[in-house]
């Protein structure tokens, strides 16, 4: 009887955890969490500042400066976050790798969503289409496997190689996920369109 109970409990756990597949919930939580994080950080740091100055009525020039900086960063983060569904730059390397895997293999679930990801810039030239394809390459935790997400910088009018960075340069790409097919090719490809690209200074 005890064994049966354990088996039922295991099955219930499996079913409960497996059923919740609401992507909207995921998105909402990501956005809310990021905004909340900034706000919480602001409140926490303000409180710490107040405590350390023994409840000074007038804030010092230093704290005023910090507050302006925090406000600016909060506004910036809020603007950044508001138009990003999945911010992969805030995830650990395992999560980023798994997320990119999901994007490639479960692409239908992510079409139309905006992504922000960090990786290395790579490009390839494909003879059949006579086009350059630009990628943001993400490595896994073992650094032996990597997955690339293709992106189209802006409207695609940027000239390669003049306007693009050197291969291997660390970049942050933000764009809308879409799938497409090339003429005469049955494979379904995915990429980030209307993407912005920033070079990360290490």
């Amino acid at each position: 009887m005890k064994c049966v109970k354990i088996m039922i409990a295991l099955f219930l756990l499996l079913i409960l955890a497996g059923c919740s597949n609401d992507e909207a919930v995921v998105n909402r939580v990501i956005n809310q969490n990021n905004v909340d994080q900034v706000i919480d950080q602001l409140i926490e740091q303000t409180e710490t500042e107040n405590n350390s100055t023994n409840l000074e009525i007038e804030p010092s020039n230093q704290s005023k400066g910090d507050m302006e900086k925090w406000n600016a960063s909060a506004e910036k983060s809020e603007n950044e976050v508001s138009d990003v569904d999945y911010d992969l730059t805030k995830m650990s390397s395992d999560m980023v790798y798994a997320m990119v895997y999901q994007m490639v293999f479960e692409s239908d679930e992510y079409v139309g969503k905006t992504f922000r990801l960090e990786g290395k810039y790579y490009t390839i030239y494909y003879d059949l289409t006579k086009k350059y394809y630009h990628y943001c390459l993400i490595e896994d935790a073992l650094a032996c496997c990597s997955q690339g997400i293709e992106f189209v910088w802006g409207d695609g009018s940027h000239v390669y190689p003049d306007e693009y960075p050197q291969e291997g340069t660390k970049i942050v790409v933000q764009g809308t996920f879409e799938t497409y097919k090339e003429d005469g090719d049955d494979y379904l490809y995915c990429r980030l369109k209307d993407a912005t690209m920033e070079i990360v200074n290490e």
């Binding site: 497996g18 032996c144 496997c145």
Partner: peptide, 25 residues
Amino acid sequence: TNLSGDVCTVLFGSTSILTLTKIEV
């Protein structure tokens, strides 16, 4: 195109558990 990566993933697991398909789960 990344044979060493594939072998490495099979041998050491890497993030395999995070990339299971629904059927595999």
